[in-house]
């Protein structure tokens, strides 16, 4: 446990293994469970209409430490939560004769929408107080209801669409744009306008050196736009904690902030940088000065310097060969 508690807590490893996942009673292929990434992908093409998944898990605790320690009435609980649906479900696990704690957690389609998080806590009586949290598994498992493969990182959707022929009215209005970035949804999306003449062939089929360098320039420009938009979206949605400081968000927002803040506010810890950015944004002091650094951080992630240099060199060579 990372937080310091006013009572003794368990130091040893608390290890969670997902043993089996069943969708409406039918076992999910093991390939849908990634132990390394701690992700279960519940989306199966053949069974889009599933109602309930059941996740069987096994937890091993540092048994000797627990037996020797000052804790009594030790129990182990699995907790499944999802922020978007305010869902929280706690299931007690039972101790097997071999010492492992086992049990299962139901994931109902009615209670979950995109990604649920499964954690395990160890609870016991310490110093006469019952129900103390004395340990927790290091990291949560992600139960992804939309993924076809158990991968943790999913930060950006790319949609290739002809804006002018789209069903979405706002896209039709913006049909002159080669690309757009939308950060208002659950996942940021880059819309590439296939109706923008020449864009799709350039991005997908560049062959000559000049074409390739032009593709690099355009692609890095798109990526830069996306990083900037995602950064702005992430800092404008910050939740403020009880102590008045901004909380590190979850999902892609967390990932974007973790990657960009070191370049935006160099040398500061994540929490300090977040507070600094949040304060500058809300009171307006120094917010415009910060734009330069946000731009720099986005360009760096999008590798714009690299692609510009490559393009310049390609141009030079083309000119040399013409002489």
């Amino acid at each position: 446990m990372k937080t310091l508690m006013p009572y003794p807590t368990v130091v040893g490893d608390i290890d969670v293994t997902i043993e089996k996942v069943a969708l409406d009673g039918r076992d999910l292929p093991y390939s849908m469970i990634s132990r390394n990434e701690r992700v279960v992908a519940l989306h199966e093409v053949e069974r889009a209409e599933w109602e309930e998944a059941r996740i069987a898990l096994r937890v091993s605790l540092p048994e000797r430490e627990i037996e020797a320690g000052p804790w009594t009435d030790v129990v182990c609980v699995a907790i499944l939560t999802e922020g978007a649906t305010n869902a929280r479900l706690a299931r007690p696990l039972r101790k097997r004769t071999d010492g492992a704690w086992v049990g299962s957690v139901p994931v109902s389609r009615t209670l979950h929408r995109t990604r649920a998080s499964l954690t395990v806590s160890v609870v016991g009586t310490v110093g006469g107080v019952a129900g103390r949290v004395i340990g927790a598994a290091d990291a949560a498992w992600v139960i992804d209801l939309t993924a076809r493969a158990p991968e943790r990182k999913k930060e950006l959707n790319i949609v290739e669409i002809d804006f002018a022929a789209s069903d979405e009215e706002w896209l039709i209005k913006l049909k002159e744009s080669p690309w757009l970035v939308d950060t208002s949804g659950e996942m940021p999306t880059v819309y590439l306008n296939t109706g923008f003449e020449g864009l799709a062939p350039l991005l997908n089929g560049a062959r000559s050196e000049m074409e390739k360098s032009a593709r690099g320039l355009v692609a890095s420009q798109i990526a830069g736009d996306a990083w900037t938009a995602m950064f702005h979206a992430a800092v404008s949605d910050l939740e403020i904690g009880d102590d008045g400081t901004p909380q590190v968000p979850s999902g892609w927002r967390e990932s974007v902030l973790r990657q960009m803040l070191p370049d935006v506010i160099p040398g500061a810890s994540l929490a300090d940088a977040l507070l600094e950015v949040h304060e500058r944004r809300t009171d307006g002091q120094g917010w415009s000065a910060l734009q330069t650094y946000i731009h720099h951080a986005a360009a760096k992630r999008a590798r714009i310097p690299k692609y510009v240099r490559t393009a310049v060199r390609a141009l030079d060579r083309a000119e040399d060969s013409e002489r």
């Binding site: 508690m5 006013p6 309930e52 609980v77 706690a90 299931r91 109902s108 209670l111 129900g131 949290v133």
Partner: peptide, 15 residues
């Protein structure tokens, strides 16, 4: 520091 779920158990909702 206190796990309310253990102190005050509740069955999952009947979906």
């Amino acid at each position: 520091t206190l796990m309310y779920d253990v102190i005050a158990p509740v069955e999952p909702p009947d979906t």
